[in-house]
């Protein structure tokens, strides 16, 4: 469902000069799978996901998402993905219903179809009590649910979650992780990026470790443990990125 082929992204910064944010990353992920992208802050996770969501143009390389090429058919890629991140906020002056309806229209759903989907999603996520409240008046948890509704209004086969639990309390974070599992169970392809080890351990079928713009390794948790000979996931991770603590 997603096939990434030698993606590169280079930025130019006045102070720091050329920066290789993503340096030749390739991988594949499949329907019914939660694919974890794990790496410390600044590893290039967000840039990678933004390229796959066609918000950023790769410097070189390409990828196919939901069967469409990110360079040649960016609009069709966006039509078939849901994208949720810490920086995909809501329009404060719209109500929850208006917000989701707006995106339904942008995804090309008819008014009747949008209304039907909203009814479905709002019931499922228990959103009816604040459906007509303005987004700026909602609690963080309610806002997250509106964001979820916004990202799945068009039933996308592929979903990207970029550090979606950043800054959320444990209850709200649970809403998100439960929703991610549900997407996987419905047979969607899910890419989930985070720097939180426990989330990766709990959720992901396969894990890609990204460090300084490069893909260090891809594998299941069991494979990574075997490869490093470590049990605790933190140790596995540190060993893989070469920042292992010296034995005391």
């Amino acid at each position: 469902m997603i096939s990434v082929n030698e993606l590169h992204k280079e930025f130019f910064d006045k102070k720091r000069g050329r920066i290789q944010a993503v340096n030749g990353i390739s991988f594949e992920c499949h329907p019914g799978e939660i694919f974890g992208v794990l790496g410390p802050n600044g590893a290039g996770k967000t840039t990678l996901l933004r390229m796959l969501a066609t918000i950023l143009q790769p410097t070189s390389g390409t990828a196919s998402v939901a069967g469409y090429d990110i360079l040649k058919e960016p609009q069709l890629v966006r039509q078939n993905i849901g994208y949720l991140s810490g920086s995909t906020a809501l329009y404060e002056r719209l109500t929850a219903r208006e917000m989701v309806t707006y995106f339904g229209t942008l995804y090309g759903l008819s008014a009747a179809e949008t209304a039907r989907r909203i009814e479905e999603i709002f019931t499922e996520l228990d959103m009816h009590s604040f459906a007509d409240g303005r987004c700026d008046k909602l609690s963080t948890g309610q806002k997250q649910r509106v964001s979820i509704a916004r990202s799945i209004i068009h039933e996308p086969p592929v979903l990207f979650f970029d550090e979606p639990t950043n800054g959320l309390d444990i209850v709200t974070a649970r809403t998100i992780t439960r929703f991610i599992r549900r997407c996987r169970n419905q047979g969607r392809t899910v890419v989930f990026s985070t720097h939180i080890m426990s989330e990766v351990e709990a959720l992901c079928e396969r894990i890609a470790i990204v460090y300084q713009g490069r893909l260090i390794v891809v594998g299941t948790l069991a494979e990574l443990r075997e490869q490093t000979g470590k049990q605790a996931f933190e140790d596995v991770f540190l060993k893989l990125i070469g920042e292992e603590d010296e034995e005391l």
Binding site: Q79, N80, T105, L106, P157, R188
Partner: peptide, 24 residues
């Protein structure tokens, strides 16, 4: 599940999305 792949350009012309942005 494969999702519903809409060929957005044919069914929903650019003008309707532009109009949606304008109205919002």
């Amino acid at each position: 599940m494969t999702g519903n792949k809409r060929t957005s350009d044919a069914a929903h012309p650019a003008s309707s999305r532009m109009l949606a942005v304008f109205i919002k």
